[in-house]
Nucleic acid binder design. Structure first.
Lengths: 211, 211
DNA sequence: TAGATTGTTAATCGATTAACAATC
DNA sequence: TAGATTGTTAATCGATTAACAATC
């Protein structure tokens, strides 16, 4: 039953959640949600139906119920531990970002090969360790997600080490296309590519105003 | 002719480019590219055909030619100026990131409402101005892209100001769904959402290993 | 009952993949 | 000529949208 939810729907759930949090009504209809997010009405209804399926004709969905179902589908209550490799500017920004915990991801520590950083701490007290301690740390702390925020030249090396540490999912913030064995999940977050895409679409005068 | 290139294809071009740069052969075939990137062979061929259309049976594509065509399609040679609003950790990381210039985007300055930052400079010498100067700066420097890296509470306000400054495309790094008038391009880069999506897919044991 | 809203079935759309003819 | 590779046409797939019956 849980496996019938499409990736497209899963990707929209946090946006619904954010919107629902800000509402104060008891019931909310797919029409209202669609209008606020500027999404198709039927699509919203299908999404809602996929996660909770308890809408009432003429009334809509019990907001509380909807939120619980979304949280449940996203697995927000199940906390997952992650580590960051690379404590540069971007790595630091993400280590200190508070938004991840809302979705049940805890980035516990960072690793870097610059000895000067090993004594530093982030604003929230999280620590930076030598990269050599990665395997030991992952084993002891049940780390499932690895985040790559290192220069291009090191990305594949770090990736291989993470897989060796039994990490199951990688969030790749470098611009490198990683070579990954079957069974490991990768999400590429290439910021240069993303901004470049926006620029190209702008120059080509794309007509749609959201994507 | 240029308008027939799909968004899906446009999004893949930088990855092709990155790969082609690293090769040293004169000719390269779609088969080789597909194998290296682990993408479908026909899809690669269609992409190549869309941007340059000068493949030779039995030989493949002239690498130089292909690269020029991709650069051309992406409009890399046409430099576009951008500004950042928000000079926190994330804003700073992006201001100092060198990768954007490769695609012809120049983030010229940052704006922040914290007076303490107005005297600071980024590592590359770029400056931080009071937010009040935004409109004047945009007008004088032909700014077309605005980047939002401010706390949630300010995102919509900043967005409205940018539109007032005649900015045509917005890269939104905040977690807020922006309310935007017709004709303005927005790309949402919600990092919390992205990592949360990776986590959810991991927990649901997705079988595909790249997305 | 009438009307608003849900949920479902069919149609459409965009993108990828399969099959295959064209070409050097 | 044979074979590798391109380029095109048709089939497939996933997701969105349209149409409409079911429900309170």
């Amino acid at each position: 039953m849980s496996s019938v939810i499409s990736k497209a729907t899963l990707g929209r759930l946090p946006t619904y959640l954010e919107f629902l949090k800000r509402q104060e009504v008891e019931y909310i209809s797919s029409t209202q949600i669609a209008r606020a997010l500027e999404w198709g009405e039927v699509m919203v209804r299908k999404d809602m139906n996929a996660v909770c399926g308890q809408g009432k004709p003429k009334v809509g969905y019990l907001r509380e119920n909807l939120m619980t179902s979304i949280l449940d589908t996203l697995g927000v209550d199940k906390n997952i531990s992650a580590i960051m490799v690379g404590a540069g500017k971007l790595g630091t920004a993400l280590m200190e970002y508070k938004g991840f915990s809302e979705y049940g991801v805890d980035i516990k520590a960072a690793f870097d090969n610059n000895p000067e950083k090993w004594n530093e701490r982030f604003a929230n007290g999280k620590r930076i360790y030598p990269i050599e301690l990665l395997k030991e740390y992952c084993k002891e702390n049940d780390i499932r997600i690895g985040i790559i925020a290192v220069p291009q030249s090191q990305a594949q090396i770090v990736c291989d080490e993470m897989i060796d540490c039994d990490i199951k999912a990688i969030w790749n913030l470098s611009a490198v296309t990683l070579d990954i064995p079957e069974g490991i999940l990768v999400k590429n977050e290439n910021l240069a590519l993303s901004l470049s895409f926006l620029k190209t679409c702008m120059m080509r005068n794309e007509e749609r105003n959201d994507f």
